[in-house]
Amino acid sequence: MSLGKTLLAGGALLALSACNLAPDYQPPHLDLPPAFKEAGGAPWQPAQPADQVARGPWWTAFNDPVLNGLEDRIEAANPTLAVALARYDESRADAAAVSAGLLPRVDGTASLTNNRQSKDRPLRGAGQRDVYGSNTVGASASYEIDLWGKVRNQVAAGRATAQASAADLASVRLGLQAELASDYFALRGLDERAHILADTVTAYEKQLSLTQTMFQGNIVAGMDVSRAETQLDSARSQVSQVASQRAQMEHAIAALVGAAPAQFSLAPVRWTPALPAVPTGLPSTLLQRRPDVAAAERDVLAANAGIGVARAAYYPDLSLQAVGGFQDTGFNLLKLPMAFWSVGPGITLPLFEGGGWMPAWPRRWPSMTKPPPSTARRC
């Protein structure tokens, strides 16, 4: 083949490698009204995604050393967060493995075997031995020419999945931190309620004693004594209920920080939280930082790239392959006469694959009236 034909063939392969069978990705579109009704008809403001912004130790705004210490323990010992982190590591490893398809693959081989062939083997020579050695040292290289964008779409899907997993990890971490803070506030609220009930029980005990004294002096009726006893018993019952609720909340906090409930305790204290200042526009701003929204969008992108991978399966795979090395019946391998090699392209086209058969009945598309999405190919 002349140099001009070789360059022409290479240019054609490069042009074909620009094909991409995945649909043009666009973020999901929603039909929204032109204005926000509760804001007096004010127009919508374009969102600026900020899920990558570092959130930092937001709980320190409450200025509670105990809460700060508990939040730090989530990062080190919470099993749910450990599972989410392991899934993120797995998705990153999968993305790295898929990205390797963009580069050539090189494998080394070595074998030392002793073999026996049949006396009646077809095409066997008269002077061939029954038992012979076959020692081989070699290497092979292959590279898939991504004509239809299959590998590139696999890489795009892997990266999008890894980004979605990172957002899931951030969502789990943020949810656990918020749940711990909420449980801690509830526990301190129960501490305050228990203190108030203790004062209430003391006051009711004094009231009962005074009522009994007045009853003995024929100043009040026996019904007043019964009423005072009922009030005291009700207050003592509430004390027991609050103690049970506090124990349950303490166990919940122990589970969040990865501690055994039997070995975890928080001493009751009188607590007045430091309330942080919350700007007026903060709730709407936080919507732009929600990691679960970002994860859902990345999952859509990964599924979009997966369409291109599935479509590419209808077309042949073209690869360049090279194999070389040395082979001998003994150990004199590294000699030029013992060398072997093979270079050439390979093409694979699936003709039949069982499974996944579906009858050709009419499909019902989600819209029920609109045709299926476009399957235009870009090359």
Rank of each mutant, 00 (worst) to 15 (best):
A164V: 07
A76L: 13
A141L: 00
Q128I: 10
A82C: 02
D89W: 01
D120T: 09
A95V: 12
T109V: 15
V106Q: 01
N135W: 01
G125N: 04
A126I: 11
N135P: 13
S140I: 01
R159G: 10
T109S: 15
S91Y: 02
S91E: 03
A110W: 04
A126M: 05
P122V: 13
A96D: 05
A166L: 14
A110N: 04
G108L: 08
V172A: 08
D120I: 03
Y88S: 10
A139S: 03
K119P: 02
L103Y: 06
A157G: 05
N135G: 09
L103A: 06
S111H: 04
A126S: 08
L123G: 11
S142P: 06
T136P: 05
V83C: 04
Q117P: 06
D94H: 06
A167I: 05
D146K: 12
G108T: 07
L81N: 10
S142K: 06
D130W: 07
T113I: 03
G138A: 09
V131W: 07
A141Y: 00
L102N: 02
D168E: 03
R129G: 15
A97N: 10
E90R: 11
D89F: 00
A167S: 12
G108F: 03
Y143H: 13
A77Q: 11
D130N: 14
A100S: 14
P104D: 13
T161Q: 07
P79W: 12
G158K: 01
A82H: 04
R92G: 07
A86N: 15
N153R: 10
P79V: 14
Q154N: 12
N135R: 15
G101P: 09
D107H: 14
S111N: 11
A96P: 06
L174N: 06
L81G: 10
G108R: 04
A84E: 00
V131I: 09
P122H: 11
R129T: 15
A139H: 00
P104M: 10
E144G: 14
N153D: 15
E90G: 14
P79Y: 10
Q128P: 12
S134N: 14
S111C: 05
S165D: 13
Q117A: 12
R173P: 02
S99N: 13
R152N: 08
L174M: 08
G149S: 08
R129N: 14
A162P: 10
A162Q: 15
A167N: 11
A84I: 07
A76F: 07
A100F: 04
N114E: 08
Y143I: 11
V172C: 05
D130P: 03
L102G: 10
R173G: 03
L169E: 07
K150I: 00
Y143P: 10
V172R: 02
L112T: 04
A110G: 15
A76N: 08
V83D: 07
S111M: 07
A156S: 15
E75A: 15
A170P: 04
Q163T: 14
N153E: 11
G133E: 04
T109I: 13
